[in-house]
């Protein structure tokens, strides 16, 4: 049936990859798993703790649990706010972008600029920009009579990190949507004009449905990125005031490197990891479902 040469020694060719993955991913992960079931009082002495850390972590009535859930909700809230602003704003910007000529080139360059700025630089820019004494933004806002101080006010701090993220990443969503919009054949717009559709109807029935796949990707990217955000709030607010802007990743680093609570931190990172895996799985399922839909109507699409 199969007359191709068959040689089990070919498996040896996989060895280098296995070795690299083992060394760079599996062993560190196992170390974390190892830590998560032990306790240590330093001196490299470890004690078996079973699932104790996990029990504590997932029980909101304990110190560790309340801390973990507080950070988790803050991270989720942050992601939700970011998505609620960046996705509609990105679509709106994409709709307003010029369709060709030098204006398009200028717009693309301008929009790509924030994407090129490293995270900690964005943080530093806003740390200075938003200061009440020497920062232009903070000074103007204060001069308008609004009490704004991101080191002291919870609302101010949240406002700052949110606007910073919107400034940094909305253009990514906009560029993705723009690409999606450009892929819509002219015939759809012509048909809509013939059918007497309003601008709103064109958006609702043509543009939005055609953008769906692009939007799934945009939401995935922005969710992942904002859910594990670390650098910007760390630079600007340091997680404060209090721990009002301490996101999951910041808390994790505090726990692991600040307090050197290896067991607790390891358990927390395993749970963090599982949450991200679950979200990935949801997105993967949605994407493959969309792909299957596309496949099903593949031949029908033809020259559309």
């Amino acid at each position: 049936m199969n007359d191709r040469p068959f040689d089990n020694r070919a498996w040896l060719l996989v060895l280098p990859v296995l070795a690299i993955v083992l060394f760079s991913a599996l062993l560190p992960l196992m170390t974390v798993v190892n830590y998560s079931v032990q306790d240590s009082f330093g001196n490299n002495q470890f004690f078996w703790n079973g699932i104790g850390w996990y029990r504590e972590l997932l029980d909101p009535s304990t110190d560790l649990g309340s801390r973990f859930f507080g950070a988790l909700w803050r991270s989720l809230l942050f992601s939700a706010i970011i998505l609620a602003i960046e996705v509609p704003l990105g679509i709106a910007v994409a709709l307003c972008m010029p369709r060709d000529g030098w204006r398009l080139a200028a717009t693309l360059v301008l929009m790509a600029l924030p994407l090129l700025v490293p995270w900690n630089v964005v943080g530093t820019i806003w740390q200075v920009f938003a200061r009440g004494d020497i920062g232009l933004f903070g000074h103007v806002v204060n001069a308008l009579g609004i009490d704004y101080n991101y080191t002291a006010g919870i609302l101010s701090a949240w406002f700052t990190i949110v606007i910073m993220d919107v400034w940094h990443w909305t253009s990514l969503v906009a560029l993705l949507c723009y690409a999606g919009l450009r892929a819509i054949p002219d015939a759809f717009y012509q048909a809509a004009r013939i059918d007497g559709a309003s601008r709103l109807a064109v958006f609702r029935w043509i543009e939005l449905p055609k953008l769906r796949r692009v939007l799934v990707i945009a939401v995935l990217l922005r969710f992942m990125d904002s859910f594990m955000i670390y650098t910007e709030p760390f630079v600007v607010t340091g997680g404060g005031p209090g721990n009002a802007t301490t996101m999951l990743s910041i808390d994790l680093v505090k726990l692991a490197l600040g307090q050197f609570d290896l067991g607790k931190a390891a358990a927390m990172s395993i749970v963090f990891n599982l949450i991200i895996l679950a979200v990935c799985w949801v997105f993967y399922t949605v994407m493959t479902a969309l792909d299957a839909e596309k496949q099903a109507e593949g031949p029908a699409k033809g020259a559309e």
Partner: peptide, 9 residues
């Protein structure tokens, strides 16, 4: 007007 390739919502 009806186009060469189907345009549907």
């Amino acid at each position: 007007q009806v186009f060469q390739f189907p345009v549907i919502y």
